[in-house]
């Protein structure tokens, strides 16, 4: 086990630059119950680089429009306020982690693809199975594993050892972290999101997606959905690390939590659902393009 690992991580988080003010404004907006299109458009328009990004997103193949969008307000209407705010917040969070030139990192492409897939699969799962969680699933998926990047930035040699162990021993990242550093990406991610004052639901998603029963009553179902989507992403080949083990999805605590609130999912064809998810591939690739600029 590594000495002082937690202290080192905490001081790294302490010294990370704060997220930009405009992102903070969006986060506050995301939390408020009622917010109108004009308000979010005004915030975005104040920041030129954010505005450019929003138009790029609106005009991407992902939304597949036959014409060009050039007004922020129109883009907000089109994409939906929450989804757009999520993407902006995510771009802000992500850019804080753009690696300085020349440093070694974990496979960031694979990492973001996994995070995107988790968000998209969570959305499809809830839509298709009529699960009562709808809001902010996407951003929750995007940030659930953010702690992995923090650890990697703190000590790449150690974290690449963790990832290598997942391949050698066919175990999960969490298990490998436990063996090598004694601290998990879950708690580390939640410390970061706490410092950045993201809404509680995202902090809990990061903290408990591998320990869903510990999430608060209020967000337990959301965390459980993300946890299931996290596994399903892995099963569809969008995993992170070398864990190839089988899993009885319907026997996981996450599935039980979702089923308790939505008893009908007990009768659904999970085998078919996961097989048919191939249609999410395109969405995942397109979103990857948006996020990687």
């Amino acid at each position: 086990m590594i000495e002082n690992f937690k202290d080192r991580i905490l001081s790294l988080i302490e010294y990370l630059p704060p997220i930009p003010g405009v992102i903070n404004d969006l986060i506050k907006l995301l939390e408020s119950e009622n917010c109108d299109v004009r308000e979010i458009s005004r915030i975005i328009e104040q920041d030129p680089s954010l505005s450019v990004n929003v138009l790029r997103i609106a005009n991407s193949a992902f939304y597949g429009l036959p014409y060009k969008v050039s007004s922020i307000q129109y883009a907000v209407n089109l994409i939906g306020f929450r989804e757009l705010a999520s993407l902006c917040i995510f771009c802000g969070v992500g850019s804080a982690f753009n690696p300085p030139a020349g440093i070694d990192t974990i496979d960031l492409k694979m990492f973001w693809k996994h995070s995107i897939a988790t968000g998209i699969i969570a959305k499809i799962f809830c839509r298709e199975f009529d699960i009562g969680v709808r809001e902010n699933l996407y951003l929750a998926g995007l940030v659930h594993d953010i702690g992995k990047i923090v650890i990697d930035r703190s000590d790449h040699d150690i974290y690449s050892g963790v990832i290598r162990l997942t391949y050698d021993d066919n175990i999960s990242v969490t298990e490998a972290e436990d063996k090598i550093i004694g601290e998990s990406h879950s708690s580390i991610g939640s410390w970061l999101l706490e410092k950045w004052k993201l809404p509680r639901m995202f902090i809990e998603t990061a903290a408990y997606h591998h320990l869903v029963r510990d999430a608060s009553e209020e967000y337990r179902e959301l965390v459980a959905v993300i946890s299931l989507a996290d596994q399903i992403a892995r099963l569809k080949g969008f995993g992170f690390g070398g864990d190839m083990r089988g899993i009885i999805l319907t026997g996981t605590p996450a599935f039980e939590i979702v089923r308790d609130k939505n008893p009908h999912i007990g009768d659904l064809d999970m085998a078919r659902f996961v097989m048919d998810l191939d249609r999410a591939d395109n969405e995942i690739f397109e979103m990857e393009k948006i996020i990687n600029g």
Partner: peptide, 19 residues
């Protein structure tokens, strides 16, 4: 898949395969 024919077995998901 067994869906609709049998409920005795537990469905196990592997990466891109089921058992």
């Amino acid at each position: 898949t067994l869906f609709g024919f049998n409920n005795d077995f537990k469905l196990v998901h592997f990466v891109n395969a089921i058992g």
